[in-house]
């Protein structure tokens, strides 16, 4: 039996178009149960996150006249003073912590991998020891004796930085260790050595630049913690942002809500900076992959 080719061909094209048309519509209308659950979870999480913020914001606006809580906050010289103090202490803490942690994490990964669990445990101590214990320990140890740091303001600043450096250990060590995992530390170190570089040069010129993004994320977490920290700054009697916020909460109604939102905004801005720097650095710091040639 002979079949007319063109007729079949024409019908086939129409049929295919019809089928394609049906196919285009059908999947779009289909919504799976899993997708619905995902959206429900997402919306619940967003509500959990935003409702307190919106409520705080709404409460801060109740001050009369409108926006007075924010105006009073910005007019208060103690607000900027304490924020600036905490920021400076935070930056010094980050520098100290980086100088301490990066060489340690590098050396442990390169030469003492068996000690890694021990170092990890030590860096977790701030989660176990309450800040108040740390504060009283420091005050008792350094109030008198050969190094009476707690007796002077500058000395107390040094103690505060030292205490914050301890608090930053879990974040900074993990950040540095994660960063070191993304690069071939051994080969890079040996390559540097074969070219004549010493340990400091290798750390400064090769290792540290490749940990920039990791260190930054640890650094901003540290900054966020330092800016909001109350216990240590309060017991060491330092004019930091945490004690200021606490003092404000005890004496004013609406301003604490405004200050909380402002500090929250600053933290978010810091996270934004991480994301921006990370994006620009990602390309250059990418680990060299070993693979086929083109």
């Amino acid at each position: 039996m002979t079949v007319g080719g063109p007729a079949i061909g024409a019908r086939s094209e129409q049929t295919i178009e019809a089928i394609q048309g049906e196919n285009k519509v059908a999947p779009a209308r289909k919504v799976s149960g899993g997708k619905v659950i995902s959206w429900v979870v997402f919306i619940l999480a967003m509500l959990y996150f935003f409702i307190p913020l919106v409520a705080t914001f709404e409460f801060s606006l109740r001050a009369k006249p409108f926006g007075a809580a924010y105006a009073n906050t910005f007019k208060d010289p103690q607000f900027f003073g304490s924020l600036f103090y905490s920021f400076v202490i935070g930056v010094i803490t980050i520098v100290t912590s980086t100088a301490l942690i990066v060489p340690t994490a590098y050396w442990v990964r390169l030469r003492l991998p068996r000690l890694r669990p021990v170092v990890e445990f030590v860096t977790l101590m701030p989660f176990v020891i309450p800040a108040v214990v740390l504060a009283f320990g420091l005050i008792r140890s350094f109030a008198t004796g050969p190094v009476p740091l707690a007796a002077s303001q500058r000395g107390s600043d040094v103690l505060l930085v030292a205490a914050y450096t301890i608090l930053s250990l879990p974040y900074m060590y993990r950040a540095a260790d994660t960063g070191l995992r993304t690069i071939d530390v051994k080969s890079l170190t040996e390559a540097g050595q074969s070219l004549g570089a010493g340990t400091f040069r290798i750390l400064w010129s090769i290792i540290l630049p490749n940990l920039r993004v990791a260190i930054l994320s640890g650094a901003f977490l540290t900054l966020a913690i330092v800016i909001g920290e109350f216990t240590l700054a309060n017991y060491l009697a330092r004019p930091a942002f945490g004690p200021y916020l606490n003092h404000l909460g005890g004496n004013k109604s609406y301003e604490p809500a405004a200050v909380a939102l402002i500090s929250f905004g600053l933290t978010w801005a810091a996270m934004g900076v991480i994301a921006l720097i990370g994006r620009s650095a990602r390309g250059r710091s990418r680990t060299v992959e070993v693979g086929g040639a083109h």
């Binding site: 040996e190 390559a191 074969s194 490749n210």
Partner: peptide, 20 residues
Amino acid sequence: KPANRRNVGMVFQSYALFPN
């Protein structure tokens, strides 16, 4: 003698180029 004072050039299997 330490590696960095030998003046010996080394090429690695993994290239070990400095990514930064």
